[in-house]
Simulated assay, not measured.
Amino acid sequence: MAKKKKWQKRYVVVKVESAYGVASPDMTGATILEVVMLDGGNPYAGNTAERERQREGFGAFEQVNTGPYVERQIRVPYAGSGTAGEAPAYDPLLRACGMSVDVTADPAPSVVYQPGSEDEESLEMWWMEDGQMQHVSGGRGDWSLTADSQGLPYIQFDLTALYRKPEVAADASMATQAVQAKELPINKQNTTANIDSHQACMSSLSLALGNTVQYLNDINCESVEITGRQATGSTNIEAPDLASKDYFSAVESHNGVSLVPVTLTHKDAAGGIIELKGSQVQLSSISPTNSQGIMHYDIGLRFLPTGSDDNDFTLTFK
């Protein structure tokens, strides 16, 4: 009887490429990620065309993939490495989504990521599935952060890469197991938030990097490119008295747009700090909601850069 492949026996190995789309011969220098979830994704995606023919009679036609590529989804804990000034294990995923990285020791050790608009790095990935693997290269993508109160926060990466057929799994012993602190729940003990100097009673905050990711397949050229970005998000907060904070004035845009700072600071189990900070955030919408019998507001967020400075927001591990 043929061996049945176990869904649970899956993991992923990643590495930043030194040359775009050029696969490494082995996993030297690659990282085995600690992940919350690996989606099945689409290991053979692509646009299709039908070979249509005129004939006497009905029926379907052959369908041809005109440019195969791979789509994968990875969810990782929203936590750092556990060491101040050391990049998180999922650093290759952030960089493959167009995030620049700056390691600094002043005034304290920290690793700072922010979006970029050129010179995006790329990723190669070994998708391991109980004895077989799909080793793909040229990967780039998008990510989103989910931070809900009394839940465990996570970052979800949606990646697109150049197609390569699955094969028998290679030896992963040359890859390094990720050093990953354990994520802590979003709550009063671990998390603080600030919207325009107001410490809102917040039940959730989300951020979507908003990359436009395009697979290109032309004569002599094949690649995955990031061609645009609009960082947006939302937050759900308890509705304050207008005298304490007038969120309606902040949201109004018919007579001028207000841009305010928004910060979410969270610690991981090793005592490290992760700070998400947008300096120019538009509160774009407001909607009353019911949360356990308490009036809350759902507020839309637009993280804006200063001109062409790519400073929509920063994600700092310190």
Rank of each mutant, 00 (worst) to 15 (best):
P77T: 03
P77H: 01
P77A: 01
P77D: 00
P77N: 01
Y78F: 15
Y78V: 12
Y78S: 11
A79M: 02
G80T: 05
G80K: 09
S81R: 05
S81K: 02
G82I: 03
T83P: 00
T83E: 02
T83W: 01
A84Q: 00
A84W: 00
A84G: 00
A84D: 00
G85I: 11
E86I: 03
E86C: 01
E86V: 07
A87K: 11
A87T: 10
A87H: 10
P88S: 00
A89S: 09
A89P: 04
A89N: 05
A89Q: 07
Y90N: 07
Y90L: 03
Y90T: 06
D91V: 06
P92C: 10
P92I: 09
P92Q: 08
L94W: 13
L94Q: 09
R95L: 02
R95E: 08
A96M: 05
A96E: 05
A96S: 14
A96N: 10
C97Y: 13
G98A: 11
G98F: 13
M99P: 13
M99S: 09
M99R: 12
M99Y: 08
M99D: 10
S100V: 10
V101G: 03
V101K: 15
D102I: 10
D102A: 05
V103T: 12
V103Y: 03
T104C: 02
T104K: 09
A105Y: 06
A105S: 03
D106W: 08
D106M: 12
D106S: 14
P107D: 14
P107S: 09
P107L: 10
P107H: 12
S110D: 00
V111R: 01
V111T: 01
V112R: 14
V112N: 12
Y113R: 13
Y113P: 14
Y113I: 12
Q114G: 09
Q114D: 07
Q114V: 03
P115Q: 15
P115Y: 15
P115A: 12
P115F: 15
G116L: 04
G116D: 05
G116C: 05
G116M: 10
S117L: 04
S117R: 02
E118S: 12
E118K: 07
E118W: 09
D119N: 15
D119F: 15
E120K: 13
E120M: 06
E121P: 08
S122M: 11
S122I: 11
L123D: 08
L123P: 06
E124I: 06
M125C: 13
M125R: 05
M125V: 11
W126A: 12
W126K: 12
W126V: 12
W126F: 11
W127L: 04
W127I: 04
W127A: 03
W127H: 02
W127E: 03
W127S: 06
M128T: 07
E129Y: 15
E129H: 15
